[in-house]
Design a protein around this nucleic acid. Structure first.
Length: 123
DNA sequence: ATTCTCACA
DNA sequence: TGTGAGCA
């Protein structure tokens, strides 16, 4: 299931394709990028390459706008979403550290080589 | 043919 | 947000 998500994040669509897929103009798409609402990659020649997730994001923006939302509000929506994602990541990291320490204490005498600080970095 | 950045009779 | 200019 992680493999599929990886493909959705593959940046392979040039702006022309994204325009047709979202019905937005290149001007708008580039503007949304300047607002950091989408983060397309670049080819060696500086051309934007969007992923399917970027397209979904643009479609979402289109809906929010249609519902009367302003760019400020939309930006707020995503920055809060990013905050929660980060918090979830932090609690995950904390849980993994606890698990790592737990495994070390249970393993006790066995793995006393790596210090806790070093081994936790592996997760 | 396409996309990019920049600027505005 | 549109549009034309001059590049890559």
């Amino acid at each position: 299931m992680a493999e599929k998500q990886l493909r959705r994040n593959l940046a392979v669509l040039p702006i022309g394709t994204v325009m047709k897929l979202t019905g937005q103009t290149a001007r708008q798409i580039r503007y949304y990028e300047s607002q950091e609402l989408v983060l397309p990659e670049r080819t060696p020649g500086h051309q934007r390459l969007f992923s399917l997730n970027d397209v979904d994001r643009l479609l979402e923006i289109k809906d929010y706008l249609a519902e009367g939302a302003t760019m400020v509000q939309i930006r707020q929506i995503y920055r809060k979403q990013a905050q929660k994602m980060q918090q979830r990541h932090l609690t995950d990291t904390k849980a993994r550290q606890l698990l790592a320490e737990e495994m070390l204490s249970v393993g006790g005498l066995v793995g006393q080589r790596p210090s806790i600080s070093q081994s936790s970095k592996l997760y």
